Simulated assay, not measured.
Amino acid sequence: MEPFVKKIQENQPDLFTIDSWMEPYKELTAGFTSRHGGVSEAPYSTLNCGLHVQDKTEHVIRNRQLLAEAVGLPFDAFTYGEQVHGNEVAVVSLNEKGKGRTSRESAIQAKDGFITQEKGIVLCAQFADCVPLFFYDPVQQAIGLSHAGWKGSVLNISMATISLMTHTFGSRPSDIRAAIGPSIGICCYEVDDTVASRVYTVLSEIQAETDEQLTVIRRKANGKYMLNLQELNRKLLIQAGILSSHIEVTQLCTSCSTDHFFSHRKEGGSTGRMVAWIGLR
């Protein structure tokens, strides 16, 4: 069953929410934006939430405000980082609340993962093919969100996020729920030897068997490879101590579904960005 459920409401952006989390945990909000329901013009039409593309700043800010209105939390709760495809994770306190929502300069700098225990903070990260990783510890009431492109994945940002939750909040990996959100799938993600060699190194480090490796990466006749970043991150989450029964994995591919999502790869780089969000009310 697809964990990211599409929600269409009149005069609001189309959103994909993690209902299997939000229904039992009423304090939680978590999900992923679509490309529909905003004010941006082509090629960023319409719900572009990325300030770093060539869209009009006022349009991006309005789109982010529309997201906040649809989620039902104040705009000043939504907190953004300046992502760099690394594995650095920030602990977000009330001092950082609302950073980056209206400018890149005010964002939490050079971070690709974010964790907090603070109520009223919504963690946000931006995507257009990379893998969004959501974390929720219902015992310690802690949340996390990470951005895992191929670089962040092989740098094991999932482990970095879980380790920091454990160290900072006393979370136990066995209590943490994780969700892997819409991103480019193995159906569409072709990579070269440089990327493939890094992936094979990681698979070797976690002692993945040959048949397990084939679920992550497959060599093509043209010498390139098809890569499943979602499955790679699922394996890394399990390696970090998350129970497989506590991991939700989307079936949605951003490249296959440009009717719903922006895709950097499919659209040649000239496109918008979605936002993954998670917060505690």
Rank of each mutant, 00 (worst) to 15 (best):
K235T: 01
K266S: 14
G152F: 12
T166I: 07
Y225R: 04
Q83S: 11
E27T: 08
G81I: 01
K224M: 12
K26Y: 02
I143T: 10
N228L: 02
W277L: 03
E231V: 12
Q230D: 05
Q12P: 02
V39Q: 04
F16S: 02
E231C: 06
P173H: 12
G241D: 12
A77F: 14
C188S: 15
T215K: 11
E231L: 02
G98P: 11
Q141V: 01
S163C: 05
I186L: 01
I186W: 02
V131T: 15
N87I: 00
A68V: 02
G37Q: 05
I121R: 08
N156Q: 15
A148S: 15
Q9G: 00
D137C: 11
T168E: 15
M274Y: 04
K99Q: 14
M159K: 15
E2M: 03
A240C: 08
N222W: 07
P182S: 04
D76K: 07
A142H: 13
G144M: 06
A240W: 09
G120K: 07
G38Y: 03
Q9S: 13
T168V: 07
D192Q: 05
T116M: 04
C253Q: 02
N233D: 14
I247Y: 12
F262E: 04
G144V: 06
H147D: 02
E105Q: 13
P132A: 03
I143C: 09
I184G: 02
S270Q: 14
G120N: 10
I278N: 08
G149L: 00
Y44N: 09
K151V: 13
R198S: 13
Q141C: 00
A30H: 03
H260V: 11
V139M: 10
T166P: 01
Q230E: 11
S40E: 10
G81Q: 08
T57Q: 14
G223A: 05
R198D: 09
T33Q: 03
Y44L: 06
S174H: 13
L232M: 15
P24M: 06
F262Y: 15
G241E: 12
A128W: 08
S93V: 00
V249T: 15
K266N: 12
F114W: 07
S244V: 09
L15W: 06
H246E: 10
K151L: 13
T116Q: 05
G81M: 11
E27Y: 15
Q12R: 13
I115R: 09
N87C: 14
I238A: 10
